[in-house]
Design a protein around this nucleic acid. Structure first.
Lengths: 146, 146
DNA sequence: CTATTTGCAAAGCATTTGCACATTT
DNA sequence: AAATGTGCAAATGCTTTGCAAATAG
């Protein structure tokens, strides 16, 4: 598991430091998108001296390397997630608790056609962000993340 | 034109101040999404003493009233647009010049089905953000907005 | 040994707030 | 006159940067 992360980092010319590996493990385990602060709080339990700027820097490096996805939450903060295809991000965001889940549905083909026809532009990536209520909050069992 | 804006404001219990009307006119004319700074710069030509906080406050009031749409640009800033259906925003964003255009294409029906099936959640609104190159930038004729 | 990475403190910058004054209704 | 809107200055809060010390390969 951590061996894999180390290899992935090496392929991107990033050094496999303990903190970076821990960050990747945290993201890999997370079932929701995490913000820098939450990540910092979680990792500081193990690394007492970890600085918040290091979290930010690592997250952006991982984003640049295409290993991590960054989304804009309606609450105006950034959230991160370990993701596969960086050009194809579909999220379901619960407006009540802040939970973010991936959505499989994609209409990329129609989308590209539409953009070509009407805008004559070129699609490089797309983000579908669906705001709503998750099943937990619909049943009053959601915990507000924010 | 301005009469209509005044009425719309009245319906939302907002006073029709000259600055607010000018802001609405500016948004109504704009063919691209505008940021607070751009809006401030534009309106200050007419209103020398206009404060930036006033622009922010008015934009948010208009968003709250459902008269204006706010989107999160990949450059991490907020952009505003006079818009009809606040639950249905599809944007094409040019990564080169920052231009934002509306996209008509929508797959809401399939989307709702997918969310219901897999996430068991409720869709309240959705945003489809397509990042790419606009026709101007593809031809080297785009002006970087940012 | 060299290039990265990190911690710390300080800076940046878009956005927000407090409050007295001005304007709309 | 009462409620709302505005300017100004200052505060907020997330994010970034500079730089010297630490660490990975």
């Amino acid at each position: 598991m951590n061996l894999r992360h180390a290899d992935v980092l090496k392929n991107s010319n990033l050094k496999a430091t303990p903190k970076r590996l821990a960050l990747m493990s945290l993201l890999a385990q997370a079932s929701v998108y995490l913000g820098p602060q939450e990540i910092w709080d979680a990792l500081r339990k193990e690394f007492k001296t970890l600085g918040l700027p290091t979290v930010y820097r690592n997250l952006e490096e991982l984003v640049d390397a295409g290993l991590v996805t960054r989304i804009h939450h309606p609450n105006r903060q950034l959230y991160y997630y370990l993701c596969q295809n960086p050009s194809h991000h579909h999220h379901f965001i619960c407006l009540e608790c802040g939970r973010v889940e991936d959505i499989d549905f994609c209409a990329e083909a129609q989308l590209a056609k539409e953009v070509n026809r009407k805008h004559q532009g070129k699609v490089l990536s797309h983000v579908l962000q669906v705001n709503g209520l998750c099943r937990l909050c619909m049943n009053g069992r959601g915990k507000a993340l924010k």
